[in-house]
Write a protein that binds this DNA or RNA. Sequence first.
DNA 1: TTGTAAGCGTTATCAT
DNA 2: ATGATAACGCTTACAA
Lengths: 336, 336
Amino acid sequence: MESVNIKKLAQLLNLSIATVSKALRDSYDISQETKDRVMALAKELNYQPNPHASFLRKQNSKTIAVIIPEIANNYFTLAINGIESVAQEKGYHVIIYLSHEDYNRELAFTRLLTSGRADGVLISVSSTTTDYTHLHDLQNKGLPIVFFDRVCENFNTVKVTTDDYQSGYLATSHLIDQGCKRIAHLAISQSLSIGNKRAKGYIQALQDNGFTPDESLLIECTNNEEQDATLIKELLQQQKPDGIFAAVERYAIASYELCESLGLNIPEDVKVISFSNLQTASLLNPSLSTITQPAFEIGREAAAMLLKKLEKKNFQLPDESIVIQSKLITRKSTMR
Amino acid sequence: MESVNIKKLAQLLNLSIATVSKALRDSYDISQETKDRVMALAKELNYQPNPHASFLRKQNSKTIAVIIPEIANNYFTLAINGIESVAQEKGYHVIIYLSHEDYNRELAFTRLLTSGRADGVLISVSSTTTDYTHLHDLQNKGLPIVFFDRVCENFNTVKVTTDDYQSGYLATSHLIDQGCKRIAHLAISQSLSIGNKRAKGYIQALQDNGFTPDESLLIECTNNEEQDATLIKELLQQQKPDGIFAAVERYAIASYELCESLGLNIPEDVKVISFSNLQTASLLNPSLSTITQPAFEIGREAAAMLLKKLEKKNFQLPDESIVIQSKLITRKSTMR
DNA sequence: TTGTAAGCGTTATCAT
DNA sequence: ATGATAACGCTTACAA
């Protein structure tokens, strides 16, 4: 357990602790010779500064916290990849917290974060979160927060999202173009920014094309697979939609499974399109038309903004939304 | 940024710092009344002990590091879920490091970890890692290490895996049972424990069934999608296998894509089976037969062992392999 | 150019 | 039962 610390280096080199510390930080008033000696030994012994001790002095931990609802999800996985890529570039460490769509866990994490464990927070809020004071509290403590994907609209900071409204509009329009007359929307929690926007895009597209939105075709799904299956099954049996626009991948997958078990053919009986980052979308039976989100870029951008705030003394996180567009990729599931 | 610390609590309560500290830790020699007052105020002000300061004294950070090759991968995603579930139970924080299958990054992470940022390490090694001294160094510094999935066999610690050899054997036997005569194996790096074992299972199954393993049918794939596509394309065109056993999901997906582009039918022309945790395996065209790994449980078990070591003074990580079985799930891709 | 010493927030030892 | 104090490893005025 004996670790190499500054004290040890100082002893071995017959220098004071202060001199070693300054030499390591390449300070002006240390002779080049001393610096070289210190650096050489530090390298030889693989000296790593103790981050906890530096935190105590400098009040930064070179760590960011990422709070997400779940991780077994291609979207968040890609976003983490993006986040990690900039964190690694800048020498930051990434702590992951999974809220499992549970407000209380999210709350507990934010409480823990008031103690200096991380210098900033990236968050995509849980679907059961309706109150944002825990996040305001964090911000008030001086912890910079950047939202991505599931954002809090009226929060004074950067929010990175995709164009959810337009994409919802586009997906629905695409179904209309393909001849659908009864289009259902499997929506994600309407208390979520993305849920709301995607649904609004859906409704507007219907209206713009002369359809009257039908409440019984807009299903707000849950976080429970069984419950969702029941809802979707009822929808398919009772409302008999000829098009489904799924707000998230999971609902599209459930739809595929239920269509199979009910003997419905995609796309003949029902056409399906979904927000999705599934790698295998094109290999499904039938291949799935998707709104593919720039998840990696969203993660990168959010992390880049947060780290800019942490690194640049004078930079303040602006109160703005950064929108990175999704792409509509049509495949067989929506073919005429 | 003004944070609540012990000092502040002490001032407000007109107590000494020492008393407050002890009261918070529910020490024997503090009166119940004082404890109550301290606790009440701590709760009211949402006092959170500074983890960096405690580290300096106690030498533990309540943090574990997870080093994995990639995250856009259903297996690792599920494993993280398992790891996080026990970490959350025990109040530990999880830092994620992605080696991107690059030994040098893995090395850099382990160097960083010598400084106390984490109390222990869970690792699944990169496919380019052949030397394990960086990990031995970590262990020698007193950092407990637990391997999962891609383990180092001769390393004195716990290794949690699935039964890779038996599963490779099983997958291959299944293809034989389904009538395949020329079975190819798309192997992952043979320097990886899992790559080696899965391939050995494949070879043994062939031999036990009267086939002579053919080197040109055992393709060691890479980490580069294009290169893999070339390799698999050549395999399909030149060797014309009638069965493919893919060691990882990615190779199965590539096989599907290439069969499609080459006009080969699965399972009529080629049957395919793969190690995979794809949620959509049953929805693929055709549905994919898989060896499904208990990824969540593997993550849970690995984390549980590590945390046991961290929490129990007298517990030493045994030098043993914990094997949790995979399941063969047959679907259309291997139908006769 | 180098060294001394204080202090970051905690915990633990030893007094009181 | 409570308090004073040193120490953890590091940074940084300030002194030499």
